[in-house]
């Protein structure tokens, strides 16, 4: 296991390196410089600014510099936002994003598991149909549409929650809800398929033949076996929550990294875009790694894989 994790961490760095390189060169491909539209600057001023960002050097030198910086955890300096280092920007803005992201993931997963399990247990009844319909809605309605609707009705019209504000837990409710739909739908659907499969398996039959009452069959055997694979979709779910958070943060004016990312895009702040891209990828790879390890820990077939006596 330790060897496996080590190998994975090595891959992690390799992947990050490739992503960083691709991002870097893509950004260099861009026509013009980020300052070309600021014609208020004189040629001299431009030169100074360029030198300040190291843009007067050759692309090769810039690349090596950027990579060395990365190794030291330096993601470059923003063109906008008071020329703050990108790492500092991320540092200030990580907490709100993490909060709503984590809330949405947890809420979505828990509700999704419940919904999926109920649908599977009541397979082919109206309960199942309703649950399936809810999960399809969750999967299909984009989070930004949901965000706008929630904002309009729950905040603006009925004044239950703040419209766009970031201070206490109250203000995180609506963005969390908007982001919850997708993980909820995904998990519910996955859980249902998984559990229907498990419920028709031989070992469930055996569990019934032991005299287990229905609730006990579900609680002791079916749930655990269907829950384990749900772990594998945490990764893709994290991606969709990240994606969603970019607009949702924007709509609710939450000072998070998603909002930052969109702002950087609209202001052509390349260092920040680059830095955030690498940071997002890093986050994601870490999530995937953790999920893999977690899966190994909770599934006895993998956990004791090498001790097996097949």
């Amino acid at each position: 296991m330790a060897k496996y994790i080590l190998k994975r961490i090595l891959y992690l760095f390799l992947t990050l390196f490739i992503i960083a390189s691709i991002t870097f060169f893509l950004m260099k491909l861009l026509p013009g410089t980020p300052f070309s539209n600021q014609n208020r600057m004189s040629a001299d001023q431009l030169k100074i600014v360029k030198a300040q960002y190291g843009l007067d050097q050759s692309v090769g030198v810039q690349y090596v510099r950027y990579m060395v910086g990365l190794l030291h955890g330096n993601l470059g300096t923003s063109f906008q936002f008071n020329n703050e280092p990108v790492t500092a920007l991320i540092g200030q803005r990580l907490a709100p994003s993490m909060q709503i992201g984590a809330q949405a993931m947890i809420l979505g997963t828990v509700l999704g598991i419940l919904l999926g399990a109920v649908a599977a247990i009541r397979k082919n009844t109206w309960v199942d149909t309703l649950a399936t319909f809810i999960s399809i809605l969750g999967l299909s309605i984009p989070s930004f549409v949901l965000a706008v609707l929630l904002q309009f009705y729950l905040a603006y019209k009925w004044k239950i929650y703040p419209v766009a504000l970031w201070d206490n837990f109250q203000s995180s409710v609506l963005p969390t809800l908007a982001l919850t739909a997708l993980p909820l739908g995904t998990v519910a659907r996955f859980m249902r398929t998984e559990m229907v499969d498990v419920m028709s398996s031989d070992y469930i039959e055996l569990a019934k033949s032991k005299g287990n009452p229905n609730w006990r069959v579900v609680a002791k055997h079916a749930l655990r076996n269907s829950l384990i694979p749900v772990v594998t979709i945490i990764g893709p779910m994290a991606v969709s929550v990240m994606t969603g958070s970019m607009v949702v943060e924007n709509i609710f004016s939450i000072p998070g990294i998603g909002e930052q990312f969109v702002k950087s895009i609209t202001t052509n702040d390349y260092p920040t875009i680059m830095g955030l891209t690498i940071f997002y990828s890093f986050l994601l790879i870490i999530v995937y790694l953790i999920v893999d390890i977690l899966y190994g820990l909770i599934d006895p077939r993998i956990r004791l894989g090498n001790g097996g006596k097949e």
């Binding site: 994606t243 970019m246 990312f261 891209t277 997002y280 790879i285």
Partner: peptide, 19 residues
């Protein structure tokens, strides 16, 4: 495939759209 899929889709899409 592994490398391509380890970057969030949307980020690639956004990067491409910027370029």
């Amino acid at each position: 495939v592994e490398i391509v899929s380890s970057i969030p889709n949307l980020i690639v899409v956004i990067l491409m759209m910027i370029v």
